[in-house]
Design a protein around this nucleic acid. Structure first.
Length: 475
RNA sequence: CGGGGUGUAGCUCAGCCCGGUUUAGAGCGCUUGGUUCGGGACCAAGAGGCCGGUGGUUCAAAUCCACUCACCCCGACCA
């Protein structure tokens, strides 16, 4: 392992890449834009899956799996959808050595194949709501890729639900964006702004899109999750109707919602530092590492025995004792810090003598000497503190970098410094967004749910707006 | 698709201008043995490369020329 990583202040982008590669979260693959997710990274994804999956099931959803290959013609059935996704689709043209009669698209998202299937599953209001999620990989041929943030193939979950009314679909769409908010804040310790996307930023084929937006350490926004109310667009495109209580045949209402391995990128850029990765305890594949310290064989034996003794009733997945003897303790300290393990326990001969251990927090580097009495509870308590502290720090940073700006001149001056900007912009006018993008490389990130009623003139057109939107530069 | 960069050992790179003492090197990592061990240890001995590919020039190519492939970074598009 090479020493050190690029400092954030020197080159933020390189810092990010260094973290991903050196903490062994992922590796480049032989195919451009694709990445190998290594065990350290996949372990985080597994924890994301585990916790989100639980939340989905709590809210009444079940998992299923739909195929990766979709007939090309399916994509074309919803006009906006095909326009949005066709340019970035990978297409399979051959199978078994022969050209295929109809090319198959590798799913960029699964609305089309799912709605083609739902057509067969839905005939009565009694079949609704249909609440299904799938964990899957998807493929989008992006121009420019970045590890975790935008890769050609990525892992995600996509929920696809069918409802009898627009109102019910709307309720579902909102419910799920709140699930994402809760997950981001409680598990990832990543504060987010919840809101609605503007017309030009919404999902291809949606009536409207809700999103969570997080602010990264470099001041750029990251869209961390989206939830779409698809109205009847897909039902109409795939002819999915149900007979309602009133005997009438109606098109069903749809939602879809997803988060991806991008969340891992968001986690990295929210918490990590110049020492390396910082993983919130609730997502850490390994919450605690124990580093024994010894000189002689005799000491090694004593220290190891002590370590095993104090952990004898601990969950083996909760901790690891690093007994490698080819590395000195200092090396191990640095390595585990680089890899983001939230809490380290150091145990040396002195500690055995005093029946104590030394806890070292990844988030603050604080060293705490503790008696071994009631150690497990103390460790768990400290992990909970780390989790809270990470959220608090991220929240403070986000708030400190959320600015209220009134003039376009001031906005243009400050936008490159990063941050969320609370501004008046007429989001109903596409030209406003167009100009904003051209002038400042920034976009309206969302129309926040909690925007207070406040009238003011659009920074660009002067038209009166009823509330402020959040604008900023994004990943 | 534009702009920039890089391809030589597992990794980071030197060597290339000015072709031949180069039997291709260094540091890190790796293997073996020994000493170390409370913040990235040290010594010794090893293993490991047809220098991205193809073609050319030449008595001679990692080095010069042409073509080509790949990847990375920065922009426009996106979760």
């Amino acid at each position: 392992m090479s020493k050190g990583i690029t400092k954030r202040s020197e080159d933020y982008s390189q810092w990010y890449i260094d973290i991903v590669l050196k903490a062994e979260l992922a590796d480049y693959s032989p195919v451009k834009g694709c990445m190998v997710i290594r065990p350290n990274g996949y372990g985080i994804w597994e924890n994301i899956q585990k916790n989100l999956d639980h939340m989905f099931k709590e809210t009444g959803h079940v998992n299923a799996y739909f195929p990766m290959l979709i007939p090309e013609s399916f994509l074309k059935k919803e006009a906006e959808h095909v326009e949005g996704f066709a340019p970035e689709c990978a297409v399979v043209t051959h199978g078994g050595g022969k050209p295929l009669e109809e090319p198959l698209v590798i799913r960029p998202t699964s609305e089309t194949i799912i709605w083609a299937t739902y057509k067969n599953w839905i005939s009565s209001y009694r079949d609704l709501p249909l609440l299904i999620n799938q964990w899957a990989n998807v493929c989008r041929w992006e121009m420019r890729t970045r590890l975790f943030l935008r890769t050609t193939e990525f892992l995600w979950q996509e929920g696809h639900t069918a409802h009898a009314s627009f109102e019910e679909a709307e309720e579902e769409t909102l419910r799920m964006i709140r699930v994402y908010q809760r997950f981001a804040e409680e598990f990832m310790a990543m504060p987010v702004i919840v809101g609605r996307k503007t017309e030009s930023e919404k999902f291809a084929g949606a009536v409207h899109t809700y999103c969570i937006e997080a602010l990264m350490q470099d001041g750029k926004a990251l869209q961390a999750g989206t939830s779409h109310n698809l109205g009847q667009n897909f039902a109409k495109a795939f002819d999915v109707k149900f007979q309602d209580k009133d005997k009438e045949l109606k098109y069903v209402y749809a939602t879809s919602w997803g988060v991806s391995t991008r969340l891992i990128g968001g986690m990295i850029m929210t918490h990590s530092d110049d020492q390396g990765l910082v993983i919130p305890p609730k997502l850490a594949p390994l919450p605690v590492v124990i580093v024994p310290i010894w000189r002689s064989d005799e000491e090694q034996q004593k220290v190891s025995e002590f370590a095993r003794n104090i952990t004898k009733d601990w969950d083996p997945l909760f901790y690891k004792i690093d007994e490698r003897d080819q590395y000195k303790p200092g090396y191990k300290f640095n390595e585990w810090e680089l890899k983001g393990v939230p809490l380290r326990i150091e145990i040396g001969p002195r500690d055995v003598q005093n029946q104590q251990v030394v806890l070292v927090r990844r988030d603050t580097s604080e060293k705490i000497t503790l008696s071994i009495d009631n150690l497990k509870a103390q460790v768990e308590n400290t992990l909970a503190n780390i989790q809270n502290n990470l959220f608090k720090k991220a929240k403070e940073r986000t708030e400190a970098n959320t600015f209220t700006v009134n003039s376009y001149d001031e906005y243009k001056e400050r936008i490159d410094g990063g941050g969320f900007f609370r501004v008046f912009l007429d989001h109903t006018n596409p030209e406003v967004e167009q100009k904003l993008k051209e002038d400042t490389k920034s976009t309206i990130r969302c129309i926040p749910f909690d925007a207070p009623q406040e009238e003011g003139p659009c920074m660009i057109t002067g038209k009166t707006c009823p509330y402020r939107v959040i604008a900023g530069q994004a990943y």
